[in-house]
Amino acid sequence: MKIAGTSQLPFPPEKAYDLMQDPAMLALAIPGCNSLEKTGDNEYKLSLKMALASLSGQFEGKVTLTEPNRPYSFKMLVEGTGKIGFVKGEGVIKLSGLGDGISITSAITATGIEFAGDAQIGGSIATVGQRMIDTTSKMMVKQFFKKLEKLGLGAEGTNPEAGGTAGE
């Protein structure tokens, strides 16, 4: 299944990029994530509880971040296996700087995110959840970026080195 979409974060690409490379931040942003432990270079052990409608299940897996190209792009691989099935997603996340949208010379204050990849879903969830997979994955992506935005803005105040407040 193809997964693709766009999102925006109200801070510059460097910051957005770093947030997404930070396991502590990822652990907070990935919906249902219980823990994310570093197991190797750019590799993390993932434990996740998915709960959606009546469906719920524990997944164990890993997250791998590769092809780093700060702050433009990186590749992310997420794998998880649980009693109710398994999920594997691989995709490229591209970041681009956005200005205030008024003048082209304005400072970059926000990040445009573009992601595209493939997801494989197997086991029981694949057999029964066809009509939910698209809407659910979209919602989880949405939740991820929303949380990331909160985390980024929350960190804003505590980090005097960061640039001016983004786009508000």
Partner: peptide, 14 residues
């Protein structure tokens, strides 16, 4: 079946 061999029309819902 999807390309990975999952039967995606696997219940009467689909």
């Amino acid at each position: 079946y999807d390309d990975d061999g999952q039967l995606v029309s696997g219940t009467f819902m689909d």
